Computed example of a mutant assay.
Amino acid sequence: MKRSILSKPTFVIGLLLPLFMMSQDFQGKAYYFSKSKMELGSFGATMSEAQKKQIAERLKNRLEQTYILTFNKEGSTFKEDEKVDAYSGATDTWGKNFTPGVQYKNVKTKSLLQKQDFYGKQFLVKDKLLEIDWKIGKETKKIGNYLSIKATAVIPSKDLNWYDFSWGQLQNTDDEGEEKEEPMTEVTAWYTPQIPLNQGPLEYWGLPGLILEVNVGNTTMLCSKIVMNPDEKTNIKIPEKGKEVTKAEYQEIISNKMVEMRNNRTRGRRSN
């Protein structure tokens, strides 16, 4: 039986969902669209609107992305849909080094497995699910046909972006050698209790309902469609291949590699 959640009356869905979730083979898919605003900082002030538009078109693959969350009562996989670059006709291979790979979350064991490819090497990141101290508010809104409730949290930035890299991460001490205050990120999520699963996209989970929208900084991730018990069953495949590391170990590998590449470029310029 196939149910498209965001295009069917919520009254009917509300009646059927408890029956779906009693089934041992209960399964669903949620489709998310992520969009980020382009930030050019002070450099953007020197550019014309035409130049900004051209850059936005070239960066569209990084600013706009689509994902699929496949879930059952305990586990889920989250992965990005591959897109072809409109200019080069190829996928954004360089950017893929710093984006989330196929992710598996098990809310029963509170464990995470995530496959990461970094400059041709495969890693299997094995760690605990992120502990999020959600504050559930009273504000509600409709997402599609679903009543959604607002929740907020403040999370260490490094826990959300551990697969990414910035030079600022290496500058974690001030001039006197003291540790700087850890950067924090404010997160706003909207979840629906009409789908009583504590799953969600990326690192986000732990609310009493499926997370349909997440707002973090200049990025919004919105669920556009949900299909319950699709006709074609999809096995939730747990990532297996790759060197097993923790999040902290993976971040160290990235940082060391980027420093090595910078040093190699510096030595190359000096020798010319």
Rank of each mutant, 00 (worst) to 15 (best):
K121N: 07
W205A: 15
I5W: 00
P183K: 06
K257T: 15
E244D: 04
N97P: 01
Q103G: 07
L210S: 08
G95A: 10
F165A: 07
D159W: 00
W190T: 07
A45I: 05
V227S: 03
G200F: 00
E39Q: 13
T46W: 06
Q51T: 12
E39W: 05
L130M: 09
N72K: 02
E240A: 12
K243P: 01
N263E: 14
K158E: 14
L207G: 09
Y104L: 07
S23R: 13
G101E: 02
A45D: 15
L6C: 04
K96M: 12
M22Q: 14
L124R: 11
G144D: 00
R62H: 12
F43I: 10
V125S: 04
D117A: 08
Y32A: 04
V216E: 15
F165D: 08
F26K: 00
F20E: 15
K110C: 05
I132F: 01
D92Y: 03
T93K: 07
S166G: 03
K8W: 00
L63S: 11
G242E: 09
K37G: 15
T234Y: 06
A50P: 02
L170M: 12
L202F: 06
D164W: 01
K29Y: 01
N145V: 05
R269F: 13
F78Y: 15
Y191G: 02
K108W: 02
I68D: 00
L124Y: 10
Y204A: 08
T152P: 06
Q54S: 14
K138F: 07
E252F: 01
P201F: 01
S34C: 09
L147Q: 11
A151W: 00
E49F: 00
S157F: 05
Q54N: 14
K158F: 02
E80M: 13
N97F: 04
Y31I: 08
